[in-house]
Design a protein around this nucleic acid. Structure first.
Lengths: 203, 203
DNA sequence: CCTACCGATCGGTAGG
DNA sequence: CCTACCGATCGGTAGG
């Protein structure tokens, strides 16, 4: 078969639908306040029917969080692997982070706020993966500092600040709201460059 | 009597103890995942005994969130009411925000993440109060732009970014962690000045 | 401050 | 995919 249930890389249609419904409800109500009956109702089903597609509510949450964490890793990796000027790499990484946070705000928000509800050992793994992502951002900024194109004295705090902005976007962004995606993504990535003490570049 | 139960302005000792226990558990486990039995256990009591001091679990959450929202208002008001240069006002406001977010990270984090679990009409009131706080930050930045000391083209997005940083602090800060409070509060408030396009000042 | 208890709701299973 | 159901846990109350 070309698709495997519960495989994040290639989701069956039904599993994907459940995740879309779940992540929105988790975003709006929180994981614990969302019952499987709620999720089923959105899909026009009864709660027990969900178990034909998922193994548990907890696994559903974990799949969402791992997916999101690996996607965030992909963003920073994609921006650094293509080479070019370090300042351009950071600008592209920051802009793609902000756009991702806006487009996938449900997942990003849930990944931030529901970590306490993830069972071990998955919680520990997620914390480790998140730290690895943080390290990638910090290493990019450190590299710019060595090259003399960034002037910040605290690469770690700068990386943290940029990631804080991305998390913030997932909280307040609404499609059709006051700021459209192009506007704030451009401006927030400019802010990222200011944070590391780079001059603003045209890409 | 000089104290009234459930009055945020002057808490009885027992009520205060319950809130301290509750806010830490809400931070660690989430509101819905924290039972009144959990809170009571921390205090060496049984769950029904809590009702001698609080009216409901929901009211306990609302009290925590209103307290926090009014405290945040006090920070921005205190920084702007003392007058002086606008850039200094913003620096003081930002630094006090970052210190507050660190020192009261449980409350700040809970206030951000548990809003979906607040019943109406309190939820709507909190959203409105939060918007009013945001306006105070934006107005301060707009004033700096008019005076020509800030160069940002988007005062609203700049205000949002600074508040995002404060929220971020409440997520990752740990006492005794990699960055001590003086270090990151100083650096994060420098970042706030960079965000609005001000030069860094000595205070 | 306690014990005893209640109605509601939950995640999940049985069986088809 | 469904109905029927179960054990566990919850917030909160009664009564003292």
């Amino acid at each position: 078969m070309s698709t495997k249930p519960d495989n994040p890389e290639r989701l069956g249609g039904r599993v994907s639908e459940i995740r879309v419904a779940a992540v929105q409800l988790f975003y709006e109500q929180g994981y614990n306040a969302t019952s499987l009956r709620d999720i089923a109702k959105v899909m026009g089903l009864r709660a027990p029917s969900l178990y034909n597609h998922i193994s548990s509510k907890q696994q559903l949450l974990q799949d969402i969080m791992f997916d999101n964490t690996f996607s965030l890793r992909g963003l920073i990796d994609a921006a650094t692997e293509r080479g070019g000027e370090t300042v351009v790499q950071l600008k592209l990484a920051a802009e793609s982070l902000m756009r991702y946070a806006a487009q996938h705000r449900f997942q990003v928000h849930v990944s931030m706020s529901e970590l306490p509800n993830v069972d071990e050992p998955a919680k520990g793994q997620l914390v480790r993966l998140r730290l690895e992502n943080f390290d990638r951002w910090r290493n990019l900024i450190r590299r710019g500092c060595k090259e003399g194109v960034f002037t910040t004295k605290h690469p770690g705090l700068s990386a943290q600040a940029i990631l804080d902005l991305g998390a913030g976007v997932s909280y307040w962004y609404r499609p059709g709201g006051l700021y459209d995606e192009d506007k704030f993504a451009t401006y927030y990535s400019e802010i990222a460059l200011r944070i590391v003490g780079a001059s603003i570049v045209e890409t």
